[in-house]
Design a binder for these strands. Sequence first.
DNA 1: GTATCTTCTCGTCAAGATGACGATTAATGG
DNA 2: CCATTAATCGTCATCTTGACGAGAAGATAC
Lengths: 237, 237
Amino acid sequence: MNDERNWKIPEVAVSVDVAILTVRSGALHILLVWRAIEPFAGMRALPGGFLSSVEEDIDVSARRELAEETGLDADRFHLEQLRTYGAPRRDPRMRVVTVCYLALVPNLPDPVAGGDASAASWVPVAEVLEGRLPLAFDHHGIVLDAVERARSKIEYTTLATAFCDEEFTVAELREVYEIVWGEIIDPRNFHRKVTGAKDFLVPTGRKTTRNGGRPAELYRRGTATLLHPAFLRGHQA
Amino acid sequence: MNDERNWKIPEVAVSVDVAILTVRSGALHILLVWRAIEPFAGMRALPGGFLSSVEEDIDVSARRELAEETGLDADRFHLEQLRTYGAPRRDPRMRVVTVCYLALVPNLPDPVAGGDASAASWVPVAEVLEGRLPLAFDHHGIVLDAVERARSKIEYTTLATAFCDEEFTVAELREVYEIVWGEIIDPRNFHRKVTGAKDFLVPTGRKTTRNGGRPAELYRRGTATLLHPAFLRGHQA
DNA sequence: GTATCTTCTCGTCAAGATGACGATTAATGG
DNA sequence: CCATTAATCGTCATCTTGACGAGAAGATAC
């Protein structure tokens, strides 16, 4: 209720942060930057920044941030809005409302050099989740939300393939699920499930032995985006 | 990349809008206000407004908006963040980033008189979805998102009860599903499913005949928030 | 070359969930 | 008292799941 006489529309700073998740070295990782300046200088934080201009679209801003940090053509990567965080004192300098995004990317060639002044590196999310690595601002809570979103999203969508390369085996996809969920999955039931799901996987006809053992069929993503029926993790009781 | 010399952090207006959904008269309804002022004066829009001050928390702002519009103690109602909309020209006056929330409320006593200058009223969402009722700004798309969120959310959570009164029958809950999904559901299978789901419904021991026929057991919400297993609508193929 | 190890893939079986639908129960209105 | 209505219970075939056996097809060791 803006009934005061000389009330003016409050203007605040809007930033965009991106939680970029990947699977590498057998663990879920997140891309974090080192903060070069105050506040929280020297601490790690999510990559992000203020809108570059008052004209910039927030989705464009997020995509730009993702491209800068991965150093790659970010159009191929999955990017979705996660949530907006706007508690009054989350930034000590001024009121900042931050729109956060979640990106799921495959194991990229190398830990990329930060496009920004400060360096970026992949960090196992366990470091953050278990509180061993404090983050700037309210980024700790954001990472929690991001990981939980990723965990639940691969239950009912085909997004787990976003963590895989172009071509992958059923076992590699299963490893993604195991790592993201932190659960072991029966290889035979998993194989039956994913190969049975319509339009989830497209066989290439080629095989690979890169994981040892009997040669495995190589697949690429199908056109399906939703999994029917869903693939539920061990009950969240 | 803010490498310009005299670059300043852009500040923009932040607003909070709320899509308040309810089930009444056999249809899903949304609370809309009439805009009294330009832009879009005379058109209908989602209730909402700018942050009341540069200090106000966005969640608090949404809760306040909900309370004003429903005229009731809004603490009992389900309120969750939906998404943030920040396209550059979504408001012709200036750059406005709006954080939208979704509220699910029971059939309230009466179409409430708007707390604000303009009047509020319940409108069948079909009017909006089918394009018969144009809305201000990008609110049409927001309503689409809100309805889809509600539809999918009652699949795997117990939130359908948020549309019911304190005490309700299985048939009343089934009607909620039927109306929100726009599908008819077998009463016998539905009954088996919801009464079998652990901690979903708590029997009160009392019965009612308000829907005619054989007296139905009255239930209230249980403590469960997630439905296991989920209750899926007819395949979204 | 053969044994062994590894991993992939196919199969089986019991338990649980689902969808279709018959039948009974307990109210109400003539 | 009978027809109507809606709530509840039960049955059955089908599908999905989880647990696990077993064979297939490669690499490696000897």
